[in-house]
Nucleic acid binder design. Structure first.
Lengths: 101, 101
DNA sequence: ACAACAGTAAACCACATGGTTCACCAACAG
DNA sequence: CTGTTGGTGAACCATGTGGTTTACTGTTGT
């Protein structure tokens, strides 16, 4: 279900979290620090990313460590490539069709 | 603003529209036909895709023709590739760090 | 043992979103 | 000219979403 991942990435704060996490793991507090938001709000976003299969979290002691999943973006990447391929082959079809005339 | 494109693709009906449009242009009615939705609803979705820069529409006579933009998904593709690159290089960093120990 | 700290749960709120229906306009087809 | 068809605008509605605050739990440093 790739639309769930798109929806998760559709929110700017969530997108920023992913970009942050691509640089390396971080605690929930680390993620909240650069923002003006409250910690609960950030943690809700993390939960959404987790549900979308983009992020995994583990709780070590009292801090929750968040990290980007290794396979996080493959579904997105493959879907995108697939649609681009379809669209470009259709362009080819149009090109040959124009040549026939 | 790539998050807008992600948000646009986050809705299942909108995603389906894009997949349909990748096979070739279609009228608003064509897009509404396979769904159970009303035409105004579909047209609202098309408008969202248009605002996100994924789709262009032209009105020929009384029918509105919708087509996928040629550069629709490049921003999405490049962003995804970039984050994947960042994440994988970080993994390399961790690998070398482990070797040092 | 205690105080401070990181996270969590719950209740709540404002607003955006996805959908409907109805009335209407413009373009064909006869 | 007239009826039908494709699309549009507006009003409206239910639900989801992004955020808050407050109160609480469990960990950690002293």
């Amino acid at each position: 279900m790739v639309h769930q991942q798109f929806a998760a990435l559709g929110d700017p704060t969530r997108l920023a979290i992913v970009e942050r996490l691509a640089r390396g793991p971080a605690s929930a507090g680390d993620l909240a620090a650069p923002t003006t938001m409250s910690l609960p709000a950030v943690l809700k976003h993390v939960r959404v990313l987790e549900d979308a299969g983009l992020v995994t979290t583990v709780k070590r002691g009292r801090v929750r460590e968040c990290r980007l999943r290794d396979d996080a973006l493959v579904a997105v990447a493959t879907w995108t490539a697939q649609q681009q391929a379809l669209w470009s082959t259709r362009l080819d079809a149009l090109g040959t069709l124009l040549e026939d005339m």
